[in-house]
Amino acid sequence: MSVLKSAALQEAIYAALSGDAVLSGLVEGRIFDEAVHLDAPGADPGPYVTLGDETVRDWSAIGLTGGIHEAQVSVHAPTGGFASVKGIAAEVERVLSAPLAPASGRVVTQVLRGARARRVAEGGRRIDLRFEFRVEA
């Protein structure tokens, strides 16, 4: 299993998202690996992207070892409607459909498995995108 490749995959996902000029421009560079505390002093209520949960399953065969990583990336908009978060979510999908090159392991396939749009507290919006990455060790 390639849970050992999980950190390298996460770093590659973050680097791809934060390194994309279009996506970064849409969220003004607010791409995070942790939830944003909107009640913190100076917090910006604009849209942002976070890396989310990940599940890893074994994907091994004779002579090959690896894992299937199901990773979530979320688009948040504390205010406004779905139109802005859907545009940002489309950019996240575009960025993560390009080949990733983690520092360890090799991404064999990567695909968007689904997305869920929903309303959240205080009138905000959120879209959770679920990606599947097959990583060879």
Rank of each mutant, 00 (worst) to 15 (best):
V3A: 10
S6E: 10
S6V: 00
L9Y: 05
L9W: 01
L9F: 05
Q10G: 06
A16G: 12
A16K: 09
S18D: 14
G19N: 15
V22H: 12
V27G: 07
V27D: 04
E28Y: 05
G29V: 13
G29P: 06
I31H: 05
F32R: 08
D33V: 13
D33F: 03
D33T: 14
E34H: 13
A35W: 03
P41M: 00
A43P: 15
D44T: 07
P47Q: 02
Y48W: 10
Y48D: 06
L51V: 11
L51A: 11
L51S: 12
E54H: 11
E54D: 13
V56R: 00
V56Q: 06
R57G: 11
D58S: 15
S60H: 01
S60Q: 05
G67R: 01
I68M: 12
E70S: 10
A71L: 01
V73C: 04
V73R: 03
S74N: 14
S74I: 05
P78T: 11
T79W: 09
T79Q: 13
G80Q: 09
G81W: 10
V85R: 03
K86V: 05
K86Q: 14
G87V: 05
I88G: 05
E91H: 14
E93M: 07
A101D: 09
P102T: 09
S104F: 08
G105Y: 04
R106G: 00
R106T: 13
V107K: 03
Q110G: 14
Q110N: 11
Q110D: 12
V111H: 09
L112N: 13
L112S: 13
R113D: 14
R113A: 14
G114M: 09
A115P: 03
R116I: 04
A117N: 09
A117L: 01
R118C: 04
V120Y: 01
V120Q: 03
V120P: 03
A121P: 08
E122H: 05
G123A: 07
G123P: 06
G124I: 00
L129N: 02
R130T: 13
R130I: 04
F133V: 01
R134G: 00
V135D: 01
A137C: 05
